[in-house]
Design a protein around this nucleic acid. Sequence first.
DNA 1: CAAGATCAGCGTACACCGTACGTAGTAGTG
DNA 2: CACTACTACGTACGGTGTACGCTGATCTTG
Lengths: 259, 259
Amino acid sequence: MTAEDEARMLVRLLWRDPDQTPATAGRRGPKPRVSVDEVVTSAIGLADAEGLGAVSMRALAARLGLGPMSLYTYVPTRDVLLALMVDQVAAETPVPAAGPVLESLDAMARVLRNEYLAHPWLLEVSQWRQVLGPHRLQRYESQLQIIESVSMSDLTRDHVIGALSAFVIGNAHESVGARTAADSGLTDEDWWAVVGPALTSVMPPDRFPLSGRVGTAVGEHYRAPRDPDNGFDFGLARLLDGLRSTLGERRSRTDVNED
Amino acid sequence: MTAEDEARMLVRLLWRDPDQTPATAGRRGPKPRVSVDEVVTSAIGLADAEGLGAVSMRALAARLGLGPMSLYTYVPTRDVLLALMVDQVAAETPVPAAGPVLESLDAMARVLRNEYLAHPWLLEVSQWRQVLGPHRLQRYESQLQIIESVSMSDLTRDHVIGALSAFVIGNAHESVGARTAADSGLTDEDWWAVVGPALTSVMPPDRFPLSGRVGTAVGEHYRAPRDPDNGFDFGLARLLDGLRSTLGERRSRTDVNED
DNA sequence: CAAGATCAGCGTACACCGTACGTAGTAGTG
DNA sequence: CACTACTACGTACGGTGTACGCTGATCTTG
């Protein structure tokens, strides 16, 4: 499997090129026992339940009642499978495009964030050589639709979407990282009961005064200095505010009160 | 190695607890041939050169002239090693804290982004159960120092830093993903020469009019609809603008012109 | 100073991974 | 009906992280 072939296959699979399966009949050999969609859907379920690491070709094949190598009948490589999973997830929740621009952008960001929180493994999938599949491209199209009525350059349109997406991804990155529950059998309390004393016994107490004060205010001393959930609302509001002039809107009332 | 022990070890190693090595003398058995710092530094070099996947315990041991299992003398687990690498990288480039608030935040964001671009594997390291080491905590302290003079709640301070960090991480995620060069022996041109025709042959031409138009404007039809490098400047400026009122600053001159 | 106790460094071995390649068997073709 | 083409599948290989037992150097004790 050369890199070129893999790339070509990826595109055809992403877009479910009919050339792949010319017809249900007219095929030599035994009939396929499952379909590409079933493979991808099952893989997503496995990743959601037990993490991306649990999505091994063997485990997935067993889940589908197939031999380990039979998966390669449907998918040329594990990396391609992961790319298909990413695009498939984007099909679940469409991006809302109607309504006022700022509200739509706000809703769009929240939809994206919820998707990352529901499927944390999305962040682990390497984005390298990411080819756009139909669902992710449809999402981009919907995002552009939101700001289509606003007057700006096409380059700026892309930057607006990109800035919001970047913030969402970054925040999701931290939010997922902060979720320690489903990790390794340790509850939050157990974990902190172990790490907390070890930290305080080893850390110079007065070397990080601001972190100590702010960390206390956030509520979880030194451990998770971020509060990603509330931080998301804050950051998104600020970012949208910064985008107001680009979007041709006047300042918000709260900002005017600032003056 | 239970999860509790691993957590305790991680903290002690992160902070280089002297209890680990009570003294150079007074130890039974053969002398260590390398040090924890050498292990971590060498692992960083390997990850920078050949990617995180190349950092296997065997390969790293060979690089250090050790047997495969000797690494476990210094580090209890590969995950712990990765955590040590993350904190060590943060020691390379300190965050500048002097100067006007907005300029400092801008500079801070750029320093962070450059770090991710220089060490792309940072994004791949699972942030689960991330314990703060001395260098990352020092960085947080410096970030708080930037906005210490501004009046706001401690919770808001954390949110300001968090919002900027999230945007940086998200943008770096896309930037790294867009860099296809060092991937799998295919140059950008070769890759596109394969994927481009496959895409256009399989994609309904009129189904994504906005994506097509904007994608053309960005310059690379359908493939990488983002332009992360210029997008970073745009998004950062907008985000900082949205933070102006929180930071107690008046609007920028360009915004005033908007009115 | 000699000898035993102790523990750090190391090698072998195991379970698991992704997947190249050869095999077997089914369905279309002449 | 014989043959061919092509599909699904099993075996096997080189890799991974690391549990576990061994070896031998050093400190402690007699």
